[in-house]
């Protein structure tokens, strides 16, 4: 099997306006690779929600997207506060976002559930005070 294609991005945690730029670029890259619109949309939305989360909660981080012949893998890594209770965080509607974030259209407690919904697998590796790594896969 050929080597996976890897796209790497640094996500700026200081700038809400630019949040989503990495997801936009990934969408373009996947289009160029000729993946189906449905797959591209699922990858884009899951990554976008993750990117927004990194900006809102974790002062940014990194995003790596790997494309193999079998799947697209998205790895989002931050050094934010971590998630104390993952089960609670996965519930639709649960959010720790501030009113400011809600006024910007996010923080409805749908981010993580959306990421799980749009992907075939999602793993959350989180340590309070250290950071969070989320690995998602969309099968081709």
């Amino acid at each position: 099997m050929s080597e996976p294609l890897i796209f790497h991005f640094d996500v700026d945690g200081e700038n809400f306006t630019s949040a989503g730029q990495a997801s936009t670029q990934v969408k373009k890259n996947l289009r160029q690779l000729g993946l189906s619109p449905d797959i591209i949309r699922r990858v884009s939305i899951a990554m976008y929600e993750g990117e927004i989360n990194m900006v809102i909660h974790a002062d940014g981080g990194t995003a790596d997207v790997g494309v193999t012949e079998e799947y697209v893998e998205i790895v989002l890594k931050d050094h934010g506060p971590g998630i104390p209770n993952v089960e609670q965080a996965m519930q639709e509607g649960f959010s720790t976002a501030t009113d400011t974030i809600r006024s910007l259209g996010f923080g409805a407690g749908m981010g993580l559930p959306n990421m799980k919904r749009y992907t075939d697998s999602m793993e959350i590796d989180t340590v309070v005070g250290v950071g969070t790594t989320i690995t998602m896969r969309v099968n081709l």
Binding site: G20, R41, L104
Partner: peptide, 17 residues
């Protein structure tokens, strides 16, 4: 349709085609 005004509205629309 939205009454929210910030760049993430455009990004959301982009992501959703």
């Amino acid at each position: 349709l939205t009454g929210l005004v910030n760049p993430q509205v455009i990004r959301t629309a982009e992501m959703m085609d």
